[in-house]
Design a binder for these strands. Structure first.
Lengths: 161, 161
DNA sequence: ATATCTGCAAATAGTTTGCATGGCC
DNA sequence: GGCCATGCAAACTATTTGCAGATAT
């Protein structure tokens, strides 16, 4: 069955799809169109933090047949495989975003309490901290989640004027 | 109407109840038995991270009439007032715990992926980092949430043997 | 060929809300 | 006395699951 593929025109995207195929195969999962479309959708929205519902809306533009349950299942799978990241802001919805392939550094989030903007930042400042914690508490850290809440640059400027 | 009060026998607890009364009054909320019982329950379980359902079970031992909805409303209120802390571990349930009155330092969580233990640690290592982030991204940080995932000391020892 | 995946609809789980009654200030 | 808070049940929302048919390998 033929399936319209999103026009990539981007070397990075090809690399990403390769990784997706490799990772799924290695773990014994099938390579389905639904899964690729979900991943491509996330890729096309780098920097955004989408809910399952939002991903479903976007995905339906490419293939209207894809159901919401599949989107949920796919997001969960891709997240487990480390192809995408899960993000929880305590607002009752789980969000997903493309993980950073290029760097090994986990990235963190600055959440503006004024305008709700979520800004992802890449930083290795936490690495030293992680090690310190390991030593201090005898706890072997494998991962960490850091969220900063506050007021973003542009909201600060608005407040100033 | 008379209401059985949990035996305190503890100066800290009295201080805590005082704070609870003061904070509620200052914000125009009524001082009800339900609210105090919820707070005392949390206090009696310092170090644990309870779900609304769990708090409800415990609270019913003191006063079986208290409804689940009230527990939800109360936990939300106490959390907004800063009397207790909210914690989300992405397992589909929101947890609450007594906030640290003594220190200004927010505390962080070490979550063991082996046994599920959640360990709260108090540490000011993040303060420097917060400031660095503020400078670097022009973002005024007011709060942060940090979670470390990994393997706890006792699980590491079990693995070793 | 066959085990996995999908779509749909129904089920679930956690949390919220409307409303009449009860209790604090 | 008035208004906020409570309890109950019903409503809601996000997410999960069962199942029959479709699809990738």
């Amino acid at each position: 069955m033929s399936q319209k593929i999103i026009e990539l025109g981007d070397e990075l995207m090809i690399k990403f799809v390769d990784l997706y195929e490799k990772t799924l195969k290695e773990n014994g999962y099938k390579l389905t169109n639904q899964r690729r479309v979900v991943l491509e959708t996330l890729y096309n929205r780098v920097g955004e933090h989408l809910t399952a519902e939002e991903v479903h809306q976007l995905v339906k533009m490419v293939n209207p047949e894809i159901g919401l349950a599949t989107v949920y299942r796919t997001l969960q799978l891709l997240s487990e495989l480390g192809l995408i990241d899960k993000l929880n802001l305590d607002d009752g919805v789980v969000r997903y975003e493309i993980g950073e392939m290029e760097t090994k550094h986990r990235h963190h989030h600055l959440i503006c309490e004024e305008c709700g903007t979520i800004m992802g930042v890449d930083d290795d400042m936490l690495d030293a901290l992680e090690e310190a914690f390991s030593k201090k508490y005898g706890f072997k850290v494998t991962d960490h989640v850091v969220k900063f809440y506050g007021v973003c640059k542009s909201c600060l400027q608005k407040q100033g004027s």
